[in-house]
Computed example of a mutant assay.
Amino acid sequence: MPSRRTFLAALGATTLAGCTATPNDPPKSGVEELPDPDGHAYGANGDWSSFGCNAGNTRAVGDGKAPTDGVTERWRVEVPQLRQHEPIAAGGRVYYLSDGLRALDAADGSEAWRAPEIRTLPLVRGETLYAGTTDGVVALDAPTGEPRWKRTLGEDVSVRAPATYAGKRLYVPADETLFALDPETGETDWSRQLFGRLLGSPAVHFGHYVAVASEAGKLFLVGPEGVAAGEWNFPAVPRSPPTADTDAVYVNCRDGRTYGILLENVPRRDVDWATETGWADGGLAVEDHLYANGTDDLRALDTDTGEERWRFDTGDWRHTAPALGRDTLFVGGDALYALDPTPKSVPLADGPAVRFERSFHGRVGPGPTLDDGVLYVVAQTGESAYHLLALE
């Protein structure tokens, strides 16, 4: 398996379309070809098609499209105050959990359809959408919301958001069992009993392992055929699904620490490093560094050691998470911020350069997510008003 640095060096020509911009200067927008999810390390296709954007939950989009000089509002849709799920954007539609799943037209925010039975963030693969219901998982036609198949996993089962790598299998956590389903029919390829209620949105490590965390304070690695590959214990319960880079898996826990597990010597049970970051409920982002937006600050960490490289004050709002695109890091908090993720002087005591900042009436997040050069984020827009915004 190639190392992360070797892989990213080879990937750079595709991601930046041959651009030789410095870290402080975002590359020209657009690439000649989008990544192929059947061969891409993160199962990426340029869409924000699941929690964490792609199969690795890296929150990084590689299509070279992102607003780096400022944003204008394309549309807004009112949403309830207490929703803590960010939107998913893929295939010209935006999906948002609010009294079930709402599918919005990415062009103008108009509602295309609604599925009240959906209880999890969706996974979008082509023209099919997969999501958990009260007792199982359903596959819907993405343009219309019509069911293609439904699979019951049991009564009163806590089904969490599914994941996939290149559409080969559908990995569905349900209570303490990880199911691998045929994405065309919903039939079970295999299932594996683990320990503790599983978190949704497993991360797939380079197509080789499924990484899934549980409320028992554990991380499991399971091979694509259901064979156990590794198990790790944490001193606290994970707060969000894991993030899988090409060399490691990262988990944020309720003790306010983010943990790094290097996978060079799997199987083993050692946690390689732990760093104070605060609660990162929305997930972690990774590209050149690992980025965690905790309860106090956004931090950039060294992926090998967990050493803090820089931090940036976003306020005390933890219901946001970093999103990466076009060599720019976007994050919410007291405002919507666009930052230089890899400043030339590292570590940098004063934090990264701000490319732009957009303020609203109140806090920004859940989100942002990024698709086709448009940022989607929930923000407080008035004293008691909250909107899902499309910003370009």
Score class of each variant (00 low, 15 high):
residue 1 M to F: 05
residue 11 L to M: 07
residue 12 G to V: 01
residue 15 T to A: 13
residue 17 A to D: 15
residue 23 P to E: 03
residue 26 P to R: 03
residue 32 E to V: 06
residue 34 L to E: 10
residue 38 D to I: 05
residue 43 G to Q: 06
residue 47 D to P: 01
residue 49 S to A: 13
residue 51 F to P: 03
residue 52 G to W: 00
residue 55 A to Q: 05
residue 56 G to W: 00
residue 57 N to G: 06
residue 59 R to L: 08
residue 60 A to T: 14
residue 61 V to P: 04
residue 62 G to L: 15
residue 65 K to T: 13
residue 70 G to S: 02
residue 71 V to R: 02
residue 81 Q to I: 09
residue 83 R to F: 00
residue 84 Q to V: 12
residue 85 H to Y: 06
residue 86 E to M: 12
residue 90 A to D: 06
residue 96 Y to E: 02
residue 97 L to Q: 05
residue 102 R to K: 09
residue 110 S to G: 04
residue 113 W to Q: 04
residue 114 R to H: 11
residue 115 A to S: 15
residue 117 E to P: 04
residue 119 R to T: 14
residue 120 T to H: 00
residue 123 L to A: 08
residue 126 G to K: 04
residue 126 G to C: 10
residue 128 T to P: 03
residue 130 Y to C: 06
residue 134 T to R: 11
residue 139 A to N: 10
residue 142 A to Y: 05
residue 142 A to C: 12
residue 149 W to F: 14
residue 154 G to D: 09
residue 165 Y to Q: 14
residue 168 K to P: 00
residue 168 K to F: 02
residue 175 D to W: 03
residue 183 P to F: 07
residue 185 T to Q: 13
residue 187 E to Q: 10
residue 188 T to M: 02
residue 191 S to P: 07
residue 192 R to H: 00
residue 198 L to Q: 15
residue 200 G to C: 10
residue 202 P to V: 14
residue 206 F to S: 04
residue 212 V to W: 01
residue 215 E to C: 07
residue 217 G to F: 04
residue 221 L to N: 00
residue 221 L to I: 07
residue 222 V to P: 00
residue 228 A to H: 08
residue 229 A to F: 02
residue 231 E to I: 04
residue 234 F to R: 10
residue 236 A to D: 07
residue 241 P to F: 00
residue 250 Y to K: 02
residue 251 V to N: 15
residue 255 D to Y: 11
residue 263 L to F: 08
residue 266 V to N: 08
residue 267 P to K: 08
residue 267 P to R: 05
residue 272 D to F: 03
residue 273 W to C: 11
residue 275 T to V: 15
residue 286 V to S: 14
residue 288 D to Y: 12
residue 305 T to F: 13
residue 305 T to C: 09
residue 308 E to I: 11
residue 311 R to H: 09
residue 312 F to V: 01
residue 320 T to G: 03
residue 322 P to T: 14
residue 324 L to Y: 07
residue 325 G to S: 10
residue 326 R to N: 15
residue 329 L to S: 08
residue 331 V to M: 06
residue 332 G to M: 09
residue 332 G to W: 01
residue 342 T to G: 00
residue 346 V to L: 13
residue 347 P to D: 10
residue 349 A to P: 06
residue 360 F to E: 08
residue 368 P to E: 10
residue 370 L to V: 15
residue 370 L to R: 14
residue 372 D to R: 10
residue 373 G to N: 06
residue 375 L to D: 11
residue 376 Y to K: 00
residue 379 A to Y: 11
residue 380 Q to F: 08
residue 388 L to W: 00
